[in-house]
Computed example of a mutant assay.
Amino acid sequence: MRAIPDSLDAVVVAEIDRRLESVATEHGVRIPWAIESGSRAWGFPSPDSDYDCRFLFVGPRERYLTLWPMRDVIETPLDEVFDVNGWDLPKALTLMARGNATPIEWLRSPIVYGGDTAFRDELLAYAAAVVERGAMARHYLHVARRQQAGAQTLKRFFYVLRPAAALRWLADHPDDALPPMDLPTLLAETTASKEIRDAAADLIALKSVTRELGSGEPPAVLRRFAARELERAEAFESAAPGKDPDEVRARADEVFRRIVG
């Protein structure tokens, strides 16, 4: 599977492809899933946004049969354009079991450099089976709160707004724990008002043509929306787990062994 929009720089995409091939060769791993994360995949890029390629990798069985485990992260040189790194399969599986939304978002990215859909679907099915809604809500709540603790800019506000939209999505989909990745889809699939959706679309349009949004105030309707959703999500801080941890670990082991084997 490959899904690359025309808006991506072809030269940059070619370099990302080269880096992924180099990682697979140099580290002796396969990369069944490589996607774009960050603002481009979240639906609010700037003209100068860098490229945040993320990938999941799987090593040969021998990689996991040693007393001296290798690093579970592979990184390539970071610069102003490229941010390309990935996680080993066990890291992704254990983080999903703990309610970390990041690897789940990678599996749902709309921008795919290369991917095995069977691999993706198996991991999404695993996530749907083991993820606690309360843990996912806490993940997004904590992401937003960390962003609020820093210097407040319009650019940073997007990193509060998207988690707030994810929290609203969870509230509107009580039988699902896996929200979409990008902000426009999140809002479109919730009961957020047209005023909120239109204000978000206008702010996204502004960001798409502005290299530095500066420290201006975000629209009041979006500030109120984010504040309301974060306040409501505080209730998840005390939510008790509903999954049997032994069953979760057994499911993780089963998926891991099947993919590696």
Score class of each variant (00 low, 15 high):
L154N: 06
Y140N: 12
G59I: 06
F225T: 03
L154G: 09
R258C: 05
S39M: 09
A97N: 12
E189G: 08
E36L: 00
V209K: 14
S22N: 11
V130I: 02
R251G: 07
K194V: 15
G134I: 00
P184Y: 07
L183N: 04
T94N: 11
R40S: 04
T94H: 13
G134K: 00
E189P: 02
A188H: 08
I74F: 03
R63Y: 10
D182R: 10
D6C: 08
V143G: 01
T76K: 03
R257N: 14
A239I: 08
I35D: 03
T190I: 00
D88H: 01
L167D: 05
G150E: 09
P245S: 05
Y159I: 08
V130T: 00
P184A: 12
R19M: 13
A144S: 09
G38M: 03
A14F: 07
V130E: 13
P69D: 13
I111G: 01
V58L: 11
L161N: 01
A41S: 15
R98G: 13
A164S: 13
G216I: 06
A240F: 09
R251D: 14
T66S: 15
Y113A: 02
V12Q: 10
L107T: 14
D52G: 05
F236W: 15
L154M: 14
V260K: 12
R54I: 09
R258E: 06
A101T: 08
G242S: 15
E247V: 00
G261Y: 09
G216L: 04
D88I: 00
E62K: 13
R168G: 05
F236R: 07
A201W: 05
L107A: 09
L89H: 00
R19Y: 08
F157K: 09
E15K: 15
R54F: 07
A235M: 09
R30A: 13
A177F: 08
G134V: 00
L213Q: 10
V255Y: 02
A226Y: 07
T66E: 03
L107M: 15
A144V: 03
